[in-house]
């Protein structure tokens, strides 16, 4: 049977290093299978978070050969196995142990986003009428599994640690889903420009590249939101018209 070597980051926020583990591999294995095998046979105390093994729970995010990916969706036959495969925890969040990071910052950020506020029902039975095409536009954003790989790769968080001033691509997707919703009446544009820091995004599209749900984060969520911010704050002619209308 073939074997492969995995270089896995072990340690805590204070200290840690890579450890190499060689294990047998078989056809169809994914990185998470290999990690589980290593955990069962060689490193019982290896910390790794996972749940569904089907790319749907968003728990098993890590960095494989330097790229943020889901361990359960990365097949070994997609990786060069001549050299050890590196597996590291995400870098934008505090490390708890080994491959497990504390992603609770994301949940705090989400709570601060203004919630869905639908217009009054369209018909007396309390329901609404929407066009399919309008719903289709926001449907893409609802595929998000909250794996936070996009947050991990975004250099504004990863390199520049702007966690206090920037909500990150995951939450621009979330805001886009609400803000572009045909029924929603809330206005989140001002907070996007100010507290949520959309101006920090320099549209380098790394978030789009790593999203396991293939959400076109930058082009379909962030840039349209940036354009709405321009409407509100940076377009002098629009501002003039708004003032005249008032």
């Amino acid at each position: 049977m073939a074997s492969a070597t995995f270089s896995i980051w072990r340690g805590t926020a204070e200290q840690g290093k890579f450890f190499n583990y060689t294990t047998e591999i078989s056809e169809g294995m994914v990185v998470l299978d290999a990690v589980h095998k290593i955990q069962a046979e060689q490193a019982n105390d290896l910390a790794v978070r996972w749940n569904c093994k089907a790319g749907k729970c968003g728990s098993c995010s890590a960095e494989i050969n330097g790229m943020p990916r889901l361990m359960c969706m990365t097949r070994l036959n997609q990786l060069p196995l001549e050299r050890p495969v590196t597996i590291e925890p995400m870098k934008s969040f505090p490390l708890i142990k080994d491959l497990v990071t504390d992603v609770s910052w994301n949940f705090r950020v989400k709570k601060q986003i203004k919630q869905f506020k639908p217009r009054p029902p369209d018909v007396p039975d309390g329901s609404w009428r929407m066009q399919q095409e309008d719903v289709d536009r926001v449907q893409e954003f609802r595929k998000c599994i909250e794996c936070f790989l996009c947050q991990d790769v975004c250099h504004v968080l990863r390199e520049h640690h702007k966690h206090e001033e920037f909500i990150g691509p995951r939450f621009f997707v979330y805001v886009a889903a609400l803000e572009m919703h045909p029924l929603d009446m809330e206005n989140r544009v001002e907070e996007l420009a100010k507290a949520k820091g959309i101006g920090y995004c320099n549209i380098t599209k790394c978030c789009t590249k790593v999203c396991p749900e293939s959400i076109t984060i930058t082009d379909n969520a962030i840039i349209p939101l940036k354009e709405r911010v321009v409407d509100e704050f940076y377009d002098p002619i629009k501002r003039l018209f708004r003032r005249l209308r008032r």
Partner: peptide, 12 residues
């Protein structure tokens, strides 16, 4: 993507 940068400061 996921490659280190030369500068620490950032204003975007």
């Amino acid at each position: 993507c996921a490659v280190g940068e030369p500068r620490g400061g950032y204003r975007g």
